[in-house]
Design a protein around this nucleic acid. Sequence first.
DNA 1: GGATCAATCCTATAAAAGCATGATTTTTGA
DNA 2: TCAAAAATCATGCTTTTATAGGATTGATCC
Lengths: 205, 205
Amino acid sequence: MSVRILIVDDHPLVLEGLKSLLADVDEVKVVGTATNAIDAIAFLKSNEVDIAFLDINLPDISGIDLCKKVKDQFPEVKTLALSTFNERAYVSRMIQNGASGYLIKSSGKEDILEAITQVQAGGYFMNVQFDQVTPAAAPKTVPFLTRREKEVLVLIAEGLTNPQIAEQLFISVTTVNSHRQNLLIKFEVSNTASLIKLAAGLGLI
Amino acid sequence: MSVRILIVDDHPLVLEGLKSLLADVDEVKVVGTATNAIDAIAFLKSNEVDIAFLDINLPDISGIDLCKKVKDQFPEVKTLALSTFNERAYVSRMIQNGASGYLIKSSGKEDILEAITQVQAGGYFMNVQFDQVTPAAAPKTVPFLTRREKEVLVLIAEGLTNPQIAEQLFISVTTVNSHRQNLLIKFEVSNTASLIKLAAGLGLI
DNA sequence: GGATCAATCCTATAAAAGCATGATTTTTGA
DNA sequence: TCAAAAATCATGCTTTTATAGGATTGATCC
């Protein structure tokens, strides 16, 4: 029996690319695709899937959160993270959330098949080389940010001041300030400059 | 006659995806693919191509530089930049280097065909929505910075305050502040957050 | 030698951000 | 359903930035 694959990625190119690459492989069958988390979950409810390829960046929720949801609701489904980047922080968070592996999108056909084989056999696969010389400044992991904190972070990066952010989000300035202080604490920095530099380096803004 | 396409991208998935998406379109023919700039140039030397899709991120040289080379050596070839991101800075640099358009990889089939049609007709295509509410920010090019301004910029990004920078550089706080204000003016921003975000985006820090 | 520009310094004010501390309500997950 | 976490708001104070308006010294380039 062939391995049943679900691909979740909002890039049509990637969907098509994977399908195309896997089309002529007998042992593998792409049984479904989804471009967002909602559709992915819905598909899993009514279909049997062995391995789900999850893009890290999805329109509704992050692949990291989706991974957690999938493992919670469908523990028998194995998950494989897909990303354009070599992001050490993402890798560890996906693994923490139960992923069986991590595949960068620049992987070749061999890598992809190898990953499927490994994961299907219950093992792990990871072809990430951490080539970028990660400077000492970067924290080990991306701090966990709440929804509101992410929103505030983005607005700070856009150059809005606390009063402007407060107006935008319909909350008080002191609340904005609270979120801001929490961001500083979570990133372990002491001012906006370092915060934005780190966040930018992690691709958060 | 169909439009002859060359795709240059180091992601096999994207190559396959584009080929697959364009396979059943009569007006378009993917005549070649390359995963690096050298191969791309070599291919152009011995083949006729109407439009070259260029990935922004290539292993050897950047798509931006490749775009320039292609336009220099093969002015009749139209180029279309491909990127995962909505990066305003990249867009303008590609256009400056002669690109006829810019396509984000999350584009659907319709967008891609529309781009090909537009570009082949001699027009421009750009499906980048600068969805982030980027107010007046983002200068077209990297502003010219003096030696001292660069030093100060780096120290700001490291999280030092004006007094700390002054101490580090053996100058007065007011001087540091002057440089800082000049940085804000040159980057056309109004606070540190935007400054660092832009500088990070341009690879300055 | 005059113009330009970088780099240096100054005063002064207003605005924003950082820091501490604490509290209430809502949401969420086990 | 109960506890934890998130989101909300507040007060008071200090430090840092932002803005405006200069001024002086060198170096560099025609």
